[in-house]
Design a protein around this nucleic acid. Sequence first.
DNA 1: CACATCGCTTGCAAAATGCAAGTGAAATTG
DNA 2: CAATTTCACTTGCATTTTGCAAGCGATGTG
Lengths: 141, 141
Amino acid sequence: MKQPASNKRPQPARASEPKQRRTGKDAARRSVCPIACTLDVLGDKWTLLVVRDLFAGKSHYHEFASSPERIASNILADRLERLVTAGLVETSSSSQRVGSSAYALTARGTSLFPLLAAIRDWGLANIAGTQARVQVPSPKA
Amino acid sequence: MKQPASNKRPQPARASEPKQRRTGKDAARRSVCPIACTLDVLGDKWTLLVVRDLFAGKSHYHEFASSPERIASNILADRLERLVTAGLVETSSSSQRVGSSAYALTARGTSLFPLLAAIRDWGLANIAGTQARVQVPSPKA
DNA sequence: CACATCGCTTGCAAAATGCAAGTGAAATTG
DNA sequence: CAATTTCACTTGCATTTTGCAAGCGATGTG
């Protein structure tokens, strides 16, 4: 126990602070930085792959699940739920099944295209062996 | 124990396959998709914040550590090491300390700027309360 | 109506993360 | 120049997230 005898900051300990751990779905925003805030939503290895698949025209659970990266089923369900919560994806209940069946990007989700394109372009230019597949869904094919 | 009696795929079990778990630092590439490959390198909540700080001119460990998001020390050390391994960052041994002291983006690291800008722009446009700070390091100030 | 498929859940082990507290060397200070 | 402070990390540990396999109910199909 070394106590340098000064420099103590005993932290008054307000009794009603829940000791916020910065993790979990309800984690507080880390800062006001737009990069940090975007990463709070999209910053992991799977979310943007689901978005990529949505841009590629996929809409069903098993289509996402059968992408070459083989996302685990529980992770996929979690990411879809988060994307819906974040307002980037909506479940079109066209066939109104029990579980949600068809997913689609919202307008806000579609606005991710430049971001996704920048990531794709960087990968193509900087990682050997990568191949482009996703195309811009041409407005008037 | 319900065994549907058919549809069994007993997986011949080649004795010499190490049962690759797709996690850890040496995880294999998940696909040839440039987006997936980029996320293999940058896909987490912290890596791009370190890159952001590097673009903002920071170069020392304690500068990254004192960013508003308060990255944990062990995570910061890990991310810097990965960035160096990935060839995006180098330790300039200008003052040749024991621990590496000054970090800087390599040319490949600098090429991340459009990606980072796209993320920043999306955040600014789509997440309320975000504020831009990072500026393009003007080539001829 | 047996069976396959779809859209998820569940259980569990392994890995990553968050946090606090070191540690050792260099720089600073008295 | 001894004492302290700062810097750049490490370490230990609890909690959370991930990966993987399996299961499960509700359709769809032959």
